[in-house]
């Protein structure tokens, strides 16, 4: 069992219709085991009352769902306009040349993270980070955890003047 049956039951009850629970349950499965396994798809399908093939189809639509176990450290770098203008492509290319890329850690590109004020923005595992520079993000994927220059940002605004959204 990937999902906790009691919790699944509670989540199904939140919605007026059962099948709405597909995405929340898929998220829960991914939180628990790091990816969406075939077993998880079967459990989600049973809970939501839809065929497994349909759940599987839904999983392939959304880019954040993974069908394979990822490395322990994952950095996703935004490659959309503002971040690209700040050099996201070069950053990704440099990080991908580091030893251990693909096995110990992964560097992926993602589309806009709604953090353009912090270009180059990224998501490290499950937290927003930025602005990223090479040294900081290299340290992040190599050693994990919060790294100086690429410290996981709080939310955009809190603790910093609104007018000066740009981070030092």
């Amino acid at each position: 069992m990937v999902l906790d049956p009691a919790e699944t039951k509670e989540m199904v009850a939140r919605y007026p219709e059962r099948r709405s629970v597909v995405l929340p349950l898929l998220w829960r499965a991914q939180e628990r085991i790091g990816y969406i396994s075939d077993e998880a798809i079967g459990e989600v399908a049973a809970a939501a009352g839809v065929p497994a093939s349909e759940v599987s189809s839904v999983v392939t639509f959304y880019t954040m769902f993974r069908r394979e176990k990822p490395p322990a450290r994952r950095l996703q770098v935004c490659r959309s306009l503002s971040c690209a203008m700040a050099g996201a492509d070069e950053l990704v290319a440099a990080l991908r040349e580091m030893p251990g890329c693909g096995e110990k850690f992964s560097v992926e590109t993602v589309e806009c993270l709604a953090a353009c004020d912090r270009a180059i923005a990224g998501i490290y595992n499950e937290g927003l980070v930025g602005p990223l520079n090479l040294a900081g993000s290299a340290k992040l994927v190599r050693d994990g955890g919060a790294a100086g220059a690429a410290a996981p940002a709080g939310s955009s605004g809190a603790g910093a003047p609104l007018e000066g959204g740009g981070r030092p």
Partner: peptide, 12 residues
């Protein structure tokens, strides 16, 4: 939201 080649990107 303003970003790109400005001195102080952010929300105003």
């Amino acid at each position: 939201s303003i970003s790109g080649h400005v001195r102080r990107p952010g929300n105003y």
